[in-house]
Design a protein around this nucleic acid. Sequence first.
DNA 1: TGTACATCAGTGAACGCGCGTTCACTGATGTAC
DNA 2: TGTACATCAGTGAACGCGCGTTCACTGATGTAC
Lengths: 200, 200
Amino acid sequence: MGPSRRERAEETEQALKAAARQVFAERGYLNTKITDITAAAGRAAGSFYNHFASKEELLRALLADLETAGDEQAGQPGHNPDFADPDAVRFHIAGFWRFARENAVVMRAMGQAALVNEEFAREIAQFGAEQRLDIADHLDGLVAEGATLPGTVDTSLAMMFCLVQAISAAVEEGAVRISDDEAVESLTRFVYRGLTGRDY
Amino acid sequence: MGPSRRERAEETEQALKAAARQVFAERGYLNTKITDITAAAGRAAGSFYNHFASKEELLRALLADLETAGDEQAGQPGHNPDFADPDAVRFHIAGFWRFARENAVVMRAMGQAALVNEEFAREIAQFGAEQRLDIADHLDGLVAEGATLPGTVDTSLAMMFCLVQAISAAVEEGAVRISDDEAVESLTRFVYRGLTGRDY
DNA sequence: TGTACATCAGTGAACGCGCGTTCACTGATGTAC
DNA sequence: TGTACATCAGTGAACGCGCGTTCACTGATGTAC
């Protein structure tokens, strides 16, 4: 007796997701046809629709996987919310950097999907806004100590996030060549200095 | 007697370009059909191919317009290449900012085209590399004065460019709300501090 | 345990929509004489 | 200046390609008795 139906279906679904990651990485989300995914997964074209209503739905599934994986590792030992300490800045940048590099394929796919799909665009915008809100209070220590931020709190946060995100994207597409450690170190120095006006 | 053939053709070509800018701004390059452009220009679908071989060629034409416009205003009065002076940093950021805001539609279209077209991707990458090379020497003054850059020269430049570009894109798509002056001022402070390690 | 039927994951050829692209046609401008 | 023909910008219906999506079919697993 072979695998149960449920097992068989689960296998195919995982195969499709893995194949999608692969072809998205190779040629990008927008350039990927559904038959590219099924071919890479070694299944028939029609099989796709047993598991996902569309390429968008598949991307949502990949995103959901990524979120649960993110939640699991979000225990965050060593979290220090006071950006007056350079180590706290480095800790946050390193975390974001790791996340961005590990999930580069899905992040890039999301970005591409957002160009064509209003819904995805809104989700990304909201995700960014939430991220910024989550650590808005991390700058309080700086202000309390009398440091002058480079702009409003929101602008300062936006600059920090945009910078790290843009650099990780640039590294990912090969426009900038730099090791992970070097990136985190350079970014930490740039951001710490930029936010605080202090040398480091 | 009506307008000459040449005049008539020129008019239509300009109308198509203007219409393209408009619809690209409204719904993005990738979401724009050729008939969207011709409809917005008030011409028949077939007319498009008298002027451009494809949507890509039209985008190239827009890019060429933008480059000649850029060259004209590149007299650059008041150019100061020594980034030890915050005003020099502000001058460059303000220039880039103006350019990015004025040509946001075409820049965004280029970015979208690059996702689908290898050729555009290469051109953009090369353009960025050239930009960085053009002002690589602007950091020499800093190094000579004994300032510590946040990373290598190339990494430092990449961070500066990525930051300004990412913020202008974020403003353009409404993810960040900030006036032009405020943006330039905040960016100048962030970048000057980040590069030099000095307060400002 | 065995038999008969129901259900389901997977298949791949075929269908059909959307849109880029073509092309015969129109009405004008340009040219030759 | 006038006439006859060539050329060309523009038109829009029609064509056809690419690709998403469907669906009748297969061979297996699940269920009822």
